[in-house]
Amino acid sequence: MVLRKGKKNQRYEIEESPNIHLLTVLGIRKGIEVIIQSKQMFGGPVVVRAGNRSIAIASNVAEEIKVREVV
């Protein structure tokens, strides 16, 4: 499943993430766990919490991030 389709407040593990430099240095990479903090209207970004930080990820990028639900 892709991150963009994820549910708010749900925890996900990233299985595959596009090779965008800024994304990796912001800590969004394979094996990392994130929680979806919010989703925006009108196709706006998905905001995830990774560790201690909030990161806004454009929806078209979130479409390319493959994730697995973690319980």
């Binding site: 800024l22 912001l26 970004p45 930080r53 990161i55 990820i57 454009a58 078209n60």
Partner: peptide, 13 residues
């Protein structure tokens, strides 16, 4: 009218 693409949003809040 203008050509060009903007980067997708990737932002640390």
């Amino acid at each position: 009218l203008l050509k060009g693409e903007s980067q997708p949003m990737l932002l640390e809040v």
